[in-house]
Design a protein around this nucleic acid. Structure first.
Length: 588
RNA sequence: GCGCAAUUAGCUCAGUUGGAUAGAGCGUCGGCCUCCGGAGCCGAAGGUCACAGGUUCGACUCCUGUAUUGCGCGCCA
């Protein structure tokens, strides 16, 4: 006995019925016409295809087209009634019994009836990418949160996901960083880095570099030694990398992010292949020498005065720039990791850079169908003054300070509202609340736009916030706990009888039924904010149901049925939140 | 100068492939506790979808132009 992999979603269940009706009414060539099924605020669903069809058929009256279509529709098991409205919209009311049966079958399923993808891929997600010996700041927040969400989603759908943390662990700054480390002494340097004092470490090195010619000279020589593979220099470099890795790991744990040290494949990782990238480009006659630098001029990219825009693969001083590293990474990911989909979760300003890298990679044959790469760009984090988010003194904000601030505010709120919960559990809840606040605020608006970071707003337990969703979830769990304790009733399992009687119950179940198609859309267009919107709507409908349909006070089949709805809601919220990277406590 | 993106209610944001009356949240005002958790719910006020043209049965959505803002544009990553 296998569970029907067809999702509960009535738009999917109806799609083949429409295809058949379109063929019956207008001929085989109309079978594949999109019925344009949409969720509707005037009915449960609406189909908008009649208006376009009328034109194609040459029928003047779209209402007549709708009538012919409805006459051929065989869906009485799913649909209670079709109504033709306005110029020819088909409004659809779904049978409550059908919805109930669909949901009942999937009750208690860990995937809420959503089947894994039929076409699993190997997906590389490049995200977070902090710099070694440098503080993580708000700029890393978005990449980390968005990338981690996409990684969870795609993995859950059944894809093989490779998380790739492309940390900045190579390049000229390491000359001055290593020399500064030597000045401090290894022990003290490790101490400083160990407690996360990366800002002051980096800044001190920078100041010396700018103020002292002697230091600058040492730094330059050190860079040469590093690139030449000098053992002692590499050992010192490794100290910086290891200390930073431990620091990043602590931040990820704090933020509840799935990145681990093993996911790090930084710039240095690609060093062995940089020359061969250049060689291969030269062999394929794709590159040319321009002012002493090895450049590729991908077609379609022009700078000022219509000059072709180069991707500088090797600089005139023979050093490799980041384009070389990025190209080596593309080649590694398609050829070694066998990725067919690559996501680069990097700020929107780098759109042109990635467009050029991908174009060159295609020219070189490193990025060929079915493999494709997508730059998952995102906007800047702004302060409430609409300027780039900074501290009052104008410095960039440390990511850890931000997380801590959210945690502190959350703890205040939890202490105020959850006096019945012991203190150690309050702290755990506050961690979840703080992370929910930060992540939901980041994920809930269209990622490509800038967003305003407003801690006061995001930790509020009211409104469209992560905390509101956690509360809805905790309320639902509270009922399930209570009914078990007071009445000895367990949460209903698959097959339980569901009675959808009240309008708010139907609205709730319809919302639950959308999960599969929402998740599909979210991973297709890489838009976590659509999942946020879905979960917010679900919470609103649940709270409405809560107010209108008493569970514990009801009896018999009604109570069991409502319990099932509570369980389905709780499970859906928990699942959806977990895919966003947010953990939902059972009580708060 | 060229290119990319953005512009929707006082504020922060949604708006599906071009579909009916452009939706939420916050804030404001007014209601709902003999009721499972009030961190909740319901209602009201609030809009020339930046502006001007165009495409069509129909435009927040597509096209052109203008304005404003942000970001890119050969050896920093």
């Amino acid at each position: 006995m296998t569970v029907d992999p067809t999702p509960i979603d009535p738009t999917r269940a109806l799609a083949p019925r429409f295809a058949a009706a379109l063929e019956a009414a207008f001929g085989a060539e109309y079978r594949d016409t999109d019925p344009l099924l949409q969720w509707s605020d005037r009915a449960d669903l609406q189909a908008n295809c009649s208006l376009g069809l009328a034109k194609r058929i040459g029928e003047k009256n779209p209402r007549a087209v709708a009538e012919r279509l409805v006459a051929k529709l065989d869906a009485s098991d799913i649909v209670e009634r079709f109504e033709i409205a306005g110029p020819g919209f088909i409004n659809i009311t779904i049978k409550s019994e059908w919805l109930a049966a669909q949901l009942s079958e999937r009750l208690g399923d860990a995937r809420m009836g959503v089947a894994p993808t039929a076409a699993p891929e190997t997906v590389v997600i490049d995200y977070s990418s902090p710099n070694v010996a440098k503080e993580m700041h708000v700029g890393h927040l978005r990449s980390t949160v968005i990338g981690d969400c996409l990684a969870r989603l795609l993995e859950w759908q059944g894809h093989a996901v490779h998380r790739q943390n492309h940390v900045g662990d190579w390049g000229t700054p390491f000359g001055m960083l290593i020399e500064h480390l030597l000045d401090l002494g290894e022990t003290r340097a490790i101490e400083e880095l160990g407690v996360g004092e990366l800002n002051s470490f980096y800044r001190a090195a920078r100041v010396k570099f700018e103020e002292s010619d002697a230091f600058k000279d040492r730094a330059r020589k050190r860079v040469v030694a590093l690139q030449a593979g000098d053992q002692e220099t590499l050992r010192l470099w490794k100290i910086l990398v290891d200390e930073s890795t431990a620091y990043f790991d602590a931040v990820y744990k704090k933020l509840d992010v799935t990145l681990k040290p093993s996911h790090i494949a930084g710039e240095s990782f690609y060093n062995p292949w940089l020359q061969s990238v250049v060689d291969e480009l030269e062999e394929k006659k794709l590159s040319e020498l321009s002012d002493g630098a090895v450049c590729v001029f991908p077609p379609g990219f022009v700078s000022k005065e219509k000059k072709p825009l180069p991707l500088i693969v090797r600089k005139s001083d023979d050093g490799f720039g980041y384009p070389a590293t990025d190209l080596a990474a593309v080649r590694y990911r398609t050829q070694t990791l066998k990725a067919t989909r690559m996501l680069y979760v990097v700020g929107a300003p780098q759109a042109q850079h990635f467009a050029m890298v991908f174009a060159v990679a295609k020219m070189a044959g490193w990025l060929a169908a079915p493999a494709r790469a997508e730059h998952v760009g995102f906007g800047s984090v702004l302060g409430t003054d609409k300027q780039i988010y900074r501290t009052r003194s104008g410095e960039t904000v440390r990511l850890v300070d931000l997380i801590d601030a959210a945690y502190d505010r959350s703890l205040e709120i939890v202490r105020e509202n959850s006096t019945h919960i012991p203190e150690d559990e309050q702290r755990e809840i506050a961690k979840a609340v703080g992370n929910a606040a930060i992540k939901y605020a980041d994920l809930s608006s269209d990622r490509v736009k800038d967003y305003v970071f407003d801690l006061d707003r995001m930790v509020k337990p009211v409104g469209d916030t992560g905390v509101y969703l956690l509360y809805a979830h905790a309320r639902s769990r509270s009922i399930l706990r209570k009914v078990e304790k007071e009445h000895g009733l367990k949460a209903p399992e698959a097959g339980a009888r569901l009675l959808i009687e009240h309008a708010s119950e139907k609205r709730l179940v319809l919302q639950i039924s959308k999960l599969a198609s929402v998740l599909d859309e979210v991973t297709t267009v890489l838009a976590p904010h659509k999942l946020c919107g879905y979960l917010f709507d679900l919470s609103v409908r649940f709270n409405d149901f809560w107010n209108q349909c008493p569970v514990l006070q009801s009896e018999g089949d009604t109570r069991l049925s409502r319990l099932a709805l509570v369980r389905a809601t709780a499970d859906t919220l928990k699942l959806g939140l977990s895919l966003l990277g947010i953990s939902a406590p059972d009580r708060m």
